[in-house]
Every structure is written in structure tokens, then in C-alpha cells.
Amino acid sequence: MQARQLAFGSRARALSSLPVPSGHRQLRGIKPAMVFTGIVQGTAEVMDVDTKEKFSQVKIKLPPGKTDNVKLGASVAINGTCLTVTEIQKDTLSFDIMMETLRATNLGELGAGSVVNFERAAKMGDEIGGHNVSGHVHTTATITNIEQTPNNRRVTMTLADEQWMKYILPKGYIAVDGCSLTIGEVVDRSFTVYLIPETLRVTVFGIKSVGDSVNIEVETQTQAIVDTVERVVAQYMSRLTPAVAQPAAPAAPPAPAPAAPASAPSS
């Protein structure tokens, strides 16, 4: 099994606009929603973390050329978390991180010298070699086992919040630290992924070890399907429950036997 990271080719889909059918008018001012692809573009180094009350400012240095055409306000996924560029100094980008993001992701663990995955937002016409990733992390997981094989690395992770396990299915998609991967086995609160050598070379998984924390974003279509099925089944069962649980009306007690007529006294 191979990870979906860098899975270009026949599976790649283009984010190109469909032609407008004849007789239809192109709507103006409507732009496609920004997404990431889950194809991590490389690793970057944290240069500085300025921690303040309920707030952090982080400076991250990207590889040469990776900040070309970046503008203030642009979105960049750092370990799968969508952040907004607030300052640009050559190859170094600054981001403001709010308290909730620090709490809900592994970005609160960053310090100077930390290495992170990065991906710039997809543009129209870009290939999606992985799957649509929003950059909104749902929970974190801890790496609990790493097994090295001749051709790949098998990594087992355990979720911090088990409520998200219902969206993690064998052969499904998942974004781990922003990297689009295929799920292997699923057991209780844990799941496995298989990483090819190229994924280990390009992403932080090459240096991750047991005990490290990773960000998890479940696949949105899977989440929508599971939630819809749960809601429909709950509505159906709620209609059945009164009929099944309604106790039968008790049988009416038998009517009392008529009293015998009194006999006349003898003379």
C-alpha cells in the first residue's frame, strides 16, 4: 500500500473551471473556495516563537524560492493548519496563532529550530494529487508505534479524542500534519498509515518518532456521509420507537356474575 502523498498521475484531478454551457451566463464575483491538496511541498524551520498571553507570533523560514509571489494575507498550511501570512522577510514568513489554535493543534509545541510541513494554497489549474484539505484541524494524535520494512514505514497513531474515530475508515483519506495519506488498519482509537520513501524525504515524517504529536483532519466527504447516515437513522428509529415501546392496553376485567334472586320466605 502506498501513501497518497505525491500520488500524481491518473488519479490527479484538475482544479480547472468547467466551460459555461450555451445559454448560461457566467456569474461574476463568485470564486472557488480555497483548499489545500494534502501534497506537502516541503519542510520549513521555525526561526522564532514570540509567546504572549493567549497568542503567539511565529517566524518560519521556507526553502529558497518557496515564498515567491506570496502576499500579505495569503494562506499557508503549517503542519496542516491554515495560517495567514502577516509579515514577509525574504524567505521567512510570520504568522499570528490564536489560543484556540495553539490548544487544538501541535503548533503550541513549536519552538525555535522545530521543523514543520508547509503547503501553499492551491490555485485554479493545480493538480490535486491527494484530497481536498481545508486546513481546519479536528484533533491531534500521538505516534505510538513505528515499524520499518524494506519498502515503506508503517506508523500507528492514537487519537486524543476518540469521537473522531467514526470518520476514520480503512482505505479512506486522512490528513496527518497536512499530508494526504491512505488509512491502513483501524483498531479501537488507533489507525495505521504506510509511508513510502519519498514521503519520508519530503515531509516531517522522516524525523518523527514514537511519542510525537501530529495534527489530524478527517476527510470532509466522509464526515458528511457518516453524519447524514446517523441523522437519518436516528430520525427513522425515533418514529419506530413509540410504536414498539407502547404497552398494550390492559384487558377489561370480566363482568361480575348477576346476583341470584332472593327466595320468598316459607309460611
Rank of each mutant, 00 (worst) to 15 (best):
residue 215 N to A: 05
residue 26 Q to D: 05
residue 212 D to K: 09
residue 209 S to N: 10
residue 237 M to C: 10
residue 40 V to N: 07
residue 70 V to H: 15
residue 79 N to I: 03
residue 120 R to A: 12
residue 105 T to K: 15
residue 259 A to K: 15
residue 96 D to N: 14
residue 129 G to W: 13
residue 257 A to F: 10
residue 11 R to G: 09
residue 185 E to D: 11
residue 90 K to N: 12
residue 111 G to I: 09
residue 193 V to M: 14
residue 173 Y to I: 05
residue 218 V to D: 02
residue 173 Y to R: 03
residue 105 T to I: 14
residue 213 S to F: 01
residue 153 R to N: 02
residue 8 F to N: 13
residue 232 V to P: 00
residue 67 T to V: 12
residue 229 V to I: 10
residue 97 I to R: 11
residue 200 L to K: 12
residue 175 A to V: 09
residue 78 I to D: 02
residue 196 I to D: 10
residue 254 P to Q: 05
residue 250 P to F: 10
residue 11 R to K: 11
residue 257 A to N: 08
residue 223 Q to R: 15
residue 265 P to V: 05
residue 225 I to P: 04
residue 196 I to C: 01
residue 63 P to M: 13
residue 137 V to C: 02
residue 182 T to D: 04
residue 266 S to E: 14
residue 238 S to W: 07
residue 155 V to Y: 09
residue 131 H to C: 03
residue 44 A to N: 03
residue 262 A to M: 08
residue 62 L to K: 09
residue 56 S to W: 12
residue 139 T to M: 06
residue 54 K to Y: 06
residue 216 I to H: 08
residue 44 A to D: 03
residue 69 N to S: 13
residue 265 P to T: 07
residue 59 K to T: 01
residue 41 Q to L: 14
residue 231 R to D: 04
residue 230 E to A: 12
residue 18 L to I: 01
residue 121 A to H: 08
residue 61 K to D: 00
residue 151 N to R: 10
residue 94 S to W: 14
residue 133 V to F: 12
residue 152 N to T: 09
residue 198 E to R: 11
residue 234 A to F: 05
residue 195 L to Y: 11
residue 62 L to W: 05
residue 221 Q to E: 03
residue 170 P to R: 09
residue 129 G to T: 06
residue 107 L to N: 02
residue 166 K to Y: 11
residue 119 E to C: 11
residue 92 T to V: 14
residue 178 G to F: 07
residue 161 D to K: 15
residue 201 R to A: 09
residue 197 P to K: 02
residue 86 T to V: 15
residue 26 Q to W: 13
residue 132 N to L: 13
residue 59 K to F: 12
residue 28 R to L: 13
residue 28 R to I: 08
residue 94 S to P: 00
residue 264 A to E: 12
residue 80 G to P: 06
residue 133 V to I: 15
residue 127 E to G: 15
residue 233 V to I: 13
residue 91 D to M: 05
